[in-house]
Design a protein around this nucleic acid. Sequence first.
DNA 1: TTTCAAGTTTGGTATAGACCAGAGGAACGT
DNA 2: ACGTTCCTCTGGTCTATACCAAACTTGAAA
Lengths: 245, 245
Amino acid sequence: MIGIAEEKTALPVFRQIVVALKNEIVSGSLAEHTALPSERAVAKAHGVSRMTARRALEVIEAEGLAYSKGRQGRFVSPERLDYGLSSMANFISGSAEKGIEIDIELVNSRIRSADGRLARILSVPIDTQLFENTRVFSRSGHATFVETETVVSKLGNAQLCDIGSDQDVPEGQRRYGPLGHSADIVVRMRAFTPAEADLLGVMPYQTGIEQEQIVRDRGGIAFCFCHQIWRGEIAQFSAKAVLQG
Amino acid sequence: MIGIAEEKTALPVFRQIVVALKNEIVSGSLAEHTALPSERAVAKAHGVSRMTARRALEVIEAEGLAYSKGRQGRFVSPERLDYGLSSMANFISGSAEKGIEIDIELVNSRIRSADGRLARILSVPIDTQLFENTRVFSRSGHATFVETETVVSKLGNAQLCDIGSDQDVPEGQRRYGPLGHSADIVVRMRAFTPAEADLLGVMPYQTGIEQEQIVRDRGGIAFCFCHQIWRGEIAQFSAKAVLQG
DNA sequence: TTTCAAGTTTGGTATAGACCAGAGGAACGT
DNA sequence: ACGTTCCTCTGGTCTATACCAAACTTGAAA
């Protein structure tokens, strides 16, 4: 168990294994969602301890080349999904045009009262009743992001979710319709909460990309606060900037 | 060495330590850039092995509450910096208005030839000479992101960088002037390359946020490809979406 | 054929050591 | 006052092992 010798790179052993694993992934051109070798297999193949092999596989994960399904193994990541930030065009139908099927599952629907932050954002008094829906968005069976939208009225709720509804949409799932007229959006990187991690099937302390939207109607009145947390390796966000004035 | 007992949470030990450390950070309201306890100190304080303490501190890092300075220790992260995606307004002067000083250091300036991708983006033949500048952007002495801009002519270069120059700007640093008229932007999460990690003082396999811009003039001609990689815990990106048509 | 139990494999967690190189401070000698 | 050496502290890497629970595989019983 001497490790990978005779290389003069001064690269740590686990980084050398990362390089080797990457080569295997791209050269063998492993298909998306194909299983990677297990930690114990990598350890044996490279003559290192399991913890070292594990570090290498964790790097592969961090780089977005693979994802973990807990105690089932690690699998090759699919291509990234693009989310357009600049227009209110429908993400779901836009994806469908590119041949990407998105499944939406409503996992929670409840009535809550506005805390200070939500009251400020939506311009309602504190403790106002708000309607909150949480959905998991999946692509070919793999959870990609979790969305929580908070709206000021059932009407707003209906406007958001039920346009062009029915047909082949099963119960508990709903078609995602056009949104408001404009939205203020913030994107940042942060760690998943335990609840989010559970819904997405990832570890609670891993990082993803958070997107917050304050959705406004034609009059500029905010009627919906929409919050998404994405598996970071799977998403990308595009925008168009223009010179002001 | 029994660890944190009598808690019925079934939370792993290192996650319990994370909670304890977070409480210390927020309750003691540690100032930005204050040192956290070392791995060995945390291990001793909680009666666990150093590897377990290390895992806890790595989670604190992943959650953006602290950053590592290699063999000097871990320190409390500063607040996030906001980068507006929707307008071409100047990020640097915008930050200055909020009382945030940004230092820019030019770390590389070279002439390169266009590869296939750059040629396509900038609409020039392959092997066209391009001018490439790499800069490190720092805030109160802490490197925050690395930018590489590739422009088709020295003129473009000058337009980008020298507007409102001189005065108190030291040699090797330059004021960052107004950009083009519009830009196509993509934001995604990915791991740092070794070179980027070196410039930012982070580990090569950690993840950050990448932003790519294709900058166009009034006529819609792309003249600059601008690429930034941010320390993810320090940045956030805002945008404004509007209904098309 | 279906069902259920046992065994195998997986990743997740945790330990207790070890060595290294870089950064920083202290003591020392000039 | 200055520079140099040395010692200590830090995180980074690595080993070899252990136990757990979930998930999958196998095989036997119904």
